[in-house]
Design a binder for these strands. Structure first.
Length: 577
DNA sequence: GCCGTTTTCGGCCCGACTGTTTTCAGTCG
């Protein structure tokens, strides 16, 4: 049984926590934590590299971490970690997820009261003995109890679409306040992360205390967590925490930059400022001859950098590129001219073919690809050979009646990739379609190697235009199936098979972390909403943001082609695309 | 423990808020 990337990350993070408990040098702790980040975000087969002792040159992994990762990847264990863990059960690590509890307090609880799990902590609080500990009091104990209760009822992570929806409503309210000059959402929502933990708002105002008070008393603020003169934290009905920072108009660009993050991006930018002799915090540059700053772009300019779009701020090479002037011109959502992979009532969609077509046209698209499920997905009312043939006719008739140079429907199918890698329809039928999306919907538990071969076999078919939701993940609900991304990307490049960026916010699949690599290999992307209703066509907007996060440019995305270009492109043999 | 176009040693981000304190430690972002 080989070690997974997740396990490597978990071990490094546990080491960081255990060292923290022991009061180790905070920078050593940070090194382990950053090592975990690097392993988690590395776009390549980090497990194989660790196994083969080829981690040399990866920033953030020094001699010590390289050796430890090698030991872990080859033996499945790490002596250093095992020794640290003696006396701490798995349940101990749950304690770190509680609000208001950090390593210092957990260390005290563990040392004084033998607390080593949520259950023993709850018992200690109920018995009232936590309040008597040094550094603890009645309020701390009550807060721990609240936090324990909340952990039970509310998930603390939210999908991007939920976050954006909440943020837009609140932003509108903030902008209507007469003392607000500028306002923006910051944080991971602004960076279009697929999962968001809280919302951050920045407002520029001459009266910050008035704004934090205003924020705390809004109807959406179901609970006020903290309120001061410049900062206010509240919780929404949904359980989502929202932080407001109220700053002066001069401070605004710095606050917006700082709270947009990511933390790693900020640290790197800050050290760049230090090299210029300036210190950078959330309010200003300080030092000799500091430049005048009016907006975020001025901050980057002052440091000799091109403006870095928020989506790219993950410290994955964007600062180097901004320095060299080689940041890509990213896709804009307005560049999308049409889309593929959409369902109708013929399979499991909620809207008719006609309604979907009109919805797409109203959205300003020039074409819409219909791809209902195939016959091996009876749970989704998959189409039989006959029903698909009939649908192709219906689409042709629709185009004759309603289509033209401005808009048309493309006939396709979301063809199941069967367990063997064979497709659910034979080539003769697929050849009658304008396009075909191949997706896995069953036998999700195959070993990685077998799953990869299965998908590759489907991609080798000349009639498969694109690969649907590569991992089948459902964010916050189900992990994706095991599949080797490198091999799939290489195969897509060779066979000229497009890979879908499924922009249904439940999926965002293939993950943004892989697109830069795919793009560099010449793989084309199709941004598809997997829409099951007319409204869901609007997922395209999220698709564009997440594609940007993956460094994707207009020319990397097939559905930026105009209708005429797309018609010509689809007629080309796959190998010539 | 990591890193280096000021470095192989000496740095490594720091401010706001809360609660327990009486001047500050812990947590969070």
């Amino acid at each position: 049984m080989s070690v997974t990337r997740e396990r490597l990350v978990e071990v490094l993070e546990e080491i960081a926590l255990l060292l923290e408990i022991q009061g180790e040098n905070p920078f050593k702790i940070r090194a382990y934590r950053q090592g975990a980040e690097v392993v988690s975000g590395y776009d390549g087969d980090i497990v194989a590299l660790a196994r083969d002792n080829k981690l040399e040159g990866i920033k953030g992994l020094g001699d010590a971490l390289r050796d430890k990762l090698h030991e872990l990847a080859t033996t499945g264990e790490l002596e250093f970690h095992k020794k640290l863990r003696v006396g701490y059960p798995d349940s101990f690590f749950d304690l770190f997820e509680l609000d208001g509890l950090g390593p210092k307090k957990i260390a005290v609880l563990n040392r004084e009261l033998k607390v080593d799990s949520i259950i023993t902590l709850k018992a200690a609080c109920d018995a009232g003995i936590v309040a008597g500990l040094p550094g603890f009091g009645a309020k701390t104990q009550a807060k721990i109890l609240e936090s324990l209760a909340r952990r039970v009822q509310a998930a603390e992570a939210f999908r991007l679409d939920i976050a954006v929806q909440a943020a837009e409503g609140i932003l509108e309210i903030l902008r209507m306040h007469p003392e607000v000059l500028r306002a923006s959402v910051a944080g991971s929502t602004r960076r279009s992360k697929e999962i968001v933990r809280d919302l951050d708002f920045i407002v520029a105002t001459p009266k910050p205390a008035e704004l934090t008070a205003f924020f705390a008393t809004q109807e959406f603020a179901k609970e006020v967590i903290a309120q001061g003169d410049t900062k206010c934290s509240i919780r929404l009905e949904s359980g989502m925490q929202c932080d407001l920072r109220a700053v002066s108009n001069d401070q605004y660009p710095f606050a917006l930059f700082y709270f947009t993050g990511s933390k790693e991006h900020n640290v790197a930018i800050r050290s760049r400022a230090l090299k210029k002799g300036w210190s950078l915090n959330e309010y200003a540059f300080t030092g000799e001859n500091v430049p005048v700053i009016r907006d975020e772009a001025d901050i980057y300019r002052a440091l000799g950098l091109d403006f870095v779009p928020p989506e790219l701020r993950e410290n994955r090479g964007e600062i180097e590129a901004a320095d060299e002037g080689t940041l890509p011109r990213l896709l804009e959502w307005e560049n999308l001219r049409g889309t593929f992979h959409n369902h109708t009532t013929e399979s499991d969609g909620k809207a008719s073919l006609h309604a979907m077509a009109e919805g797409a046209r109203e959205l300003g698209l020039q074409y819409l690809g219909i791809a209902d499920h195939s016959k091996s997905s009876p749970q989704a009312n998959g189409l039989s050979v006959e029903r698909l043939a009939a649908q192709v006719e219906t689409i042709a008739a629709w185009n004759r009646e309603h289509g033209g140079k401005q808009f048309r429907l493309f006939a396709g199918s979301e063809v199941d990739i069967l367990k063997s890698g064979a497709l659910d329809f034979d080539d003769d039928l697929l050849a009658t379609l304008d396009f075909a999306v191949a997706s896995v919907h069953n036998a999700l538990t195959l070993e990685e190697d077998e799953m990869t071969k299965r998908i590759i076999k489907a991609m080798e078919n000349p009639y498969i235009t694109m690969l649907g939701h590569l991992t089948g993940r459902l964010l916050l609900r189900r992990d994706g199936y095991a599949v080797n991304h490198e091999k799939i990307i290489d195969c897509a490049a060779e066979t000229r098979t497009v890979i879908e960026l499924n922009c249904n916010p439940k999926r965002f699949d293939m993950d943004w972390r892989w697109w830069h690599r795919a793009r560099d290999k010449g793989v084309l992307c199709s941004i598809n909403p997997d829409a099951h209703s007319v409204n869901q066509l609007q997922f395209l907007r999220f698709g564009a943001s997440v594609a940007r996060k993956g460094w994707v440019r207009r020319e990397d995305v097939v559905n930026t082609k105009t209708l005429a270009e797309m018609e010509a492109w689809l007629k080309l043999p796959k190998g010539k695309r």
